[in-house]
């Protein structure tokens, strides 16, 4: 019996709305996010566990995480 397929996620960051406050990166339990220039970006999508903590604390409606 193989391991259950790892759930995959799609992270959408709206660069028009993101102000680069870095709250999402700080509270992401897997360090999936990082700042690049003045907005946030995904460092490594494979580490995302879909916990939604980044979305929950983003003050700018700028990040959402969808099941792939």
């Amino acid at each position: 019996m193989g391991e259950a397929a790892k759930k995959e996620w799609r992270i959408e960051i709206d660069a028009r709305l993101c102000k680069g406050c870095e709250i999402c990166a700080h509270f992401c339990p897997t360090k999936t996010l990082e700042i690049k220039g003045i907005t946030m970006s995904v460092r490594d999508l494979s580490t995302c566990i879909g916990c939604q903590l980044c979305d929950i604390r983003c003050p700018d409606f700028a990040i959402q995480v969808f099941p792939k």
Binding site: L17, K19, C21, E22, R57, C58, P59, D60
Partner: peptide, 17 residues
């Protein structure tokens, strides 16, 4: 209406959500 006027990191947006 977005982006809103609040500064980067201002908590008001978290409360609104």
């Amino acid at each position: 209406k977005l982006p809103h006027i609040w500064c980067a990191g201002c908590g008001h947006g978290i409360v609104l959500k």
